[in-house]
Write a protein that binds this DNA or RNA. Sequence first.
DNA 1: TCGCACATGTAACGCGTTACATGATTAC
DNA 2: GTAATCATGTAACGCGTTACATGTGCGA
Lengths: 180, 180
Amino acid sequence: MSDRSRTKYIILGMLSIEPSSAYDIMQKIKSSTNYFWSESEGQIYPTLAKCVRDELATCVKDSQNNGRLKKIYTITTKGRELLIEWLEKSPQDASVRNEFLLKLFFARNISTDTTILHLENFINKRQEELQSFKNINKELLLNHDLHKPFWLATLKYGIENTKSELEWAKSTLKSFKLLK
Amino acid sequence: MSDRSRTKYIILGMLSIEPSSAYDIMQKIKSSTNYFWSESEGQIYPTLAKCVRDELATCVKDSQNNGRLKKIYTITTKGRELLIEWLEKSPQDASVRNEFLLKLFFARNISTDTTILHLENFINKRQEELQSFKNINKELLLNHDLHKPFWLATLKYGIENTKSELEWAKSTLKSFKLLK
DNA sequence: TCGCACATGTAACGCGTTACATGATTAC
DNA sequence: GTAATCATGTAACGCGTTACATGTGCGA
């Protein structure tokens, strides 16, 4: 596996918490890291298979799952070592592709009304997002394992960031309405 | 060209401001949109060539550039129409890959000292970034063309976001130092 | 004369998304 | 019955990065 693939690290990270299936990992990503790191199905399944080939994880078939096939993956010592090595390295800069801001940057080419509409949609989405963060926060506060301070910290990042986006969007919306 | 390629839209957007060379476009991206949309050389040159083939832009060779070869690209009516059509469509959600947050999420696996180091580096980077935003802001305030309100708005987004990241990081750093 | 900024590109590689394909169980 | 969720995967496609290759002009 190429060293560039960061998909394997989120997989190893999730497996370092507890043994899981590919489906479990996808669910966990969607419910916990999605706002700063997402993955697609078509990436998780082949990368998990590769982790097994590279002896970073092992796989057992679980048949006690109501007859449903479920493959449970467990991290190996080698996998844990590789994960730790990566975690300790200085993180790369975040890569962002924010289509909303790009469209705003070139918005001189379209009507102010359309831009206002996009801003209003943005505000609505951020408000929904903030609500879902608050729900996750409630659940997380009940959790008491050793991951808690780290999960709270990343979640707080999401909350603060979304709040800041909301304030910016509201003030920007106001200024564009005056522009008309 | 596939409709999925968003590289062509940032190119058309930059050309909608003024005719430019590939090199110019790269410089503009680096100095103005890089914090929410970046592109690499290996993407700009072939996509520009494709824009010419698809009649979204035209190209003339500039020989008045001290003997240096420089190809100046100009957006066509078709290109401008395609750009506007895209700008008006509701923007897709931003995709983010924040390695720093991902490492923090799994930081239970490493020492608190290493995490503290990563946080301190993060704070330093954000402080530098904030300073460079402020310099761009100064320049932008002197500018008086029709793009100004949009460029100020995206820049303000960057500034507010970075400020929020800084506050979060400082408070998180404090809490991890207490944890030790 | 040495290095940096200007200026153009190509090649290799594989990452990552999207769409497709399949099928069981559960809740309404 | 039927839709949603659970659960597994593959195939196609091309996007996007990284590294390479080449050369000029300018300032220290």
